[in-house]
């Protein structure tokens, strides 16, 4: 009884000693106990077994299989032959591939650059909103994020659909511009895709940022107010540094989503790259190569060619993250 009491007591004490910067430990492995008997090590491996079983069967094998596939010829029937780096070499000269890389990068960077500031702004506004209305607004903002991309793209199609589309009738034409053919005009396909992503993810990222903001202890603001009263300075000195982990996480998430996104672009553009390939993304190109042209080797090489860059981006994000802590 006494023992249990002391445990709860310690638990309480621990929970209340909130360290404002303790977010920093998130991605690090701090050891909880220094030294454990062999039996416990065995128990640890045993408990990890189920996860790593699925990990091996449904992730590692396809990964290795994909790498292997990228070194073999495209023959669909009969044995395929080893071609080394031929697919990769061919990709470097493939204009459509280069276009897809360019589009995807542009698409990823611009959606991140729009979503993050917008989310911070919205979270800021939400915090000022009446407390009881906050969940209502949050929910309204989240609605697109709760919608399957296939449906979202469908709605979007109707929103953008040529001359009769909502956007044209409500905004573009009344402002005196010529109706934009969003999904046919090569200049507007990529912006349309970005807009759709913004619509989809802003709500969720806002929720993350809002939770992050609410977690900042007031004491930090009070301390900062000793030196400045300027709101922008306060934001730079307190809010932004505290939000860094959330923002970095969101960046990684959006980056991965952009590179593995499929549904939106697929339903919007019917699996093609749109007019003049101006909406061709890497994943739709991969899909085309594999399932429209039957070039599995090429498709696997496309997938594999992206992986190092994604890993690099992840590593850079974490590196910056660590440096900003130090």
């Amino acid at each position: 009884m006494l023992c249990a009491c002391s445990v709860t007591l310690r638990f309480q004490v621990r929970r209340h000693s909130v360290k404002p910067q303790s977010l920093q430990g998130r991605f690090e492995m701090e050891s909880s106990s220094s030294h454990q008997p062999i039996e416990s090590v065995r128990a640890a491996y045993l408990l990890l077994l189920p996860f790593f079983f699925f990990f091996t069967v449904f992730w590692l094998v396809p990964l290795v299989g994909g790498l292997r596939m990228s070194f073999y010829s495209n023959d669909l029937y009969g044995p395929s032959s080893f071609v080394g780096f031929d697919h990769y070499r061919a990709l470097l000269e493939d204009q459509r591939y280069l276009k897809a890389v360019k589009n995807t990068t542009l698409y990823a960077v611009s959606s991140i650059l729009v979503i993050l500031p917008l989310a911070v702004l919205l979270a800021h506004i939400l915090r000022a909103a009446w407390r009881r209305l906050r969940p209502v607004f949050t929910f309204l903002l989240l609605l697109p994020g709760l919608t399957p991309p296939a449906v979202l793209a469908l709605l979007f199609l109707l929103v953008f659909h040529g001359r009769e589309g909502l956007l044209n009738q409500l905004i573009v034409v009344p402002l005196g511009f010529k109706a934009i053919n969003w999904l046919k005009d090569p200049d507007f396909i990529l912006p349309a895709l970005v807009l759709q992503t913004v619509w989809r993810w802003t709500g969720f990222i806002t929720l993350f940022v809002l939770a992050g903001m609410e977690a900042i202890p007031n004491a930090l603001y009070e301390a900062a107010r000793m030196t400045t009263d300027n709101r922008w300075n306060l934001f730079r000195a307190v809010t932004f540094p505290s939000l860094k982990p959330v923002l970095i996480f969101s960046t990684v998430y959006l980056l991965v989503d952009a590179f593995s996104l499929f549904s939106g672009a697929y339903v919007l553009l019917g699996g093609s790259g749109g007019t003049a390939d101006s909406g061709l993304l890497l994943i739709s190109y991969t899909y085309q190569q594999a399932f429209a042209f039957g070039k599995f080797g090429t498709a696997a090489a496309i997938s594999a060619s992206v992986a190092p860059f994604l890993l690099l981006a992840l590593a850079l994000c974490f590196l910056r993250f660590r440096r900003s802590k130090a």
């Binding site: 299989g65 990684v252 997938s303 992986a307 890993l311």
Partner: peptide, 24 residues
């Protein structure tokens, strides 16, 4: 090592492996 391996799944989700996952 295992932890880092598990993290790599975040950057290379199943969709990124779709082609080989499909045949597998």
């Amino acid at each position: 090592i295992l932890f880092v391996l598990a993290l790599v799944v975040i950057v290379l989700p199943q969709q990124a492996l779709a082609v080989s996952l499909f045949t597998w």
